[in-house]
């Protein structure tokens, strides 16, 4: 689902990605861990087609970047630090907007809101929502076009109990046609959901652990990476 080879991305003189290679197959949940500034978010944004790598090649769903980026976009669902919703539109208007952009059926707007428990607030402007509710709306936005590749950057941050429950169920019931890249600081979350863990340091892969990894082992290996 993702094939990336030798990715380099510099910001001025600093290399956020430094010759990083990575693959992801359908059915995998890949946890990306690493200290701040290791290049996790940069990698996610390169995969999402929001940043161009300076060097290296990347393809998502067999669509090579940068020329075929448009074809890869419908496959990708990205959840980053920002919820990517307009505060002055209602919850329903936001979802309708994204349904239109992705060509998704409009009846998903209300079913999506119901799924995240916001149906009662469908016609209220997002500005009046609590932070947890905004994050749940962001989850509904993420699932709107039924993406095959989920790119999640610290998705549990700011999520309330209902939202956490919901996201965990999404990760559990993934099926074997979807893939996930999950950036997290939380070793417990990585241990619980990941089928593979990749540790990053200074823009390159520092270690890789296959199969479900125990929490203890992960903490151990992570502290080795940091030191």
């Amino acid at each position: 689902m993702i094939e990336a080879e030798g990715l380099v991305r510099r910001f001025d003189a600093r290399a956020a990605l430094n010759g990083l290679s990575l693959t992801l197959d359908a059915g995998e949940v890949l946890a990306l861990i690493g200290p701040n500034g290791a290049g996790k978010t940069t990698l996610l944004r390169v995969i999402a087609g929001l940043l161009r790598p300076d060097e290296g090649a990347i393809a998502v769903g067999g669509h090579e970047y940068p020329d075929k980026r448009q074809a890869a976009r419908p496959l990708i669902g990205y959840l980053g630090h920002d919820p990517l919703v307009y505060l002055d539109l209602t919850a329903a208007q936001n979802l309708e907007f994204y349904a239109d952009l992705y060509g998704a059926p409009t009846d998903r707007v209300l079913s999506g809101l119901e799924r995240v428990g916001l149906l009662a607030r469908a016609y209220d402007p997002v500005r009046t929502f609590s932070r947890g509710m905004v994050q749940r709306l962001a989850l509904a936005r993420l699932m709107m076009h039924d993406p095959r590749l989920l790119l999640l950057d610290e998705p549990f941050a700011g999520l309330d109990a209902a939202g956490t429950e919901l996201l965990e169920s999404v990760l559990r019931d993934l099926g074997d046609t979807r893939g996930v890249v999950l950036v997290t600081h939380d070793m417990a979350i990585a241990a619980r959901h990941a089928t593979r863990v990749v540790g990053l340091r200074a823009g390159a892969v520092a270690f890789e652990a296959l199969g479900p990894v125990g929490h203890e082992e992960l903490v151990q290996r992570y502290s080795e990476v940091i030191s």
Binding site: A48, G49, L50, Q70, A71, R73, P74, I76, Y78, G80, D82, L84, V85, Y86, L87, Y98, L101, Y102, G103, R141
Partner: peptide, 11 residues
């Protein structure tokens, strides 16, 4: 409101 990525991610 930092929504630009939402537009750019869409096809």
């Amino acid at each position: 409101q930092r929504v630009l990525d939402g537009l750019l991610l869409a096809p």
